[in-house]
């Protein structure tokens, strides 16, 4: 069981790069990269709000639950 991050798909759909998103949400590229590659152990609500605001989406569009 795990949570997957669908940031790659969303960025592709919005034709946006990770660097652009990092600038928009004011989060370091390194941290966004950790989130994108699924290496993050937790995500703050403030980060989620900023990303949803920048990409115009819902938290459910970014995160998904996967059963093994």
């Amino acid at each position: 069981m795990r949570i997957t991050v669908k940031l790659d798909d969303l960025l592709y759909a919005r034709r946006m790069t990770l660097t652009e998103l990092a600038e928009k949400v004011d989060i370091t590229l390194a941290n966004l990269s950790i989130l994108k590659t699924g290496k993050a152990k937790a995500i703050r609500f403030s980060t989620l709000i900023a990303i949803c605001d920048a990409l115009g989406c819902q938290p459910g569009d970014i995160l998904a639950f996967e059963k093994d």
């Binding site: 989060i27 941290n31 966004l32 950790i34 989130l35 290496k39 993050a40 152990k41 937790a42 995500i43 703050r44 980060t47």
Partner: peptide
Amino acid sequence: RAELEATV
């Protein structure tokens, strides 16, 4: 600490 470091 490790968990906090992996918190985005």
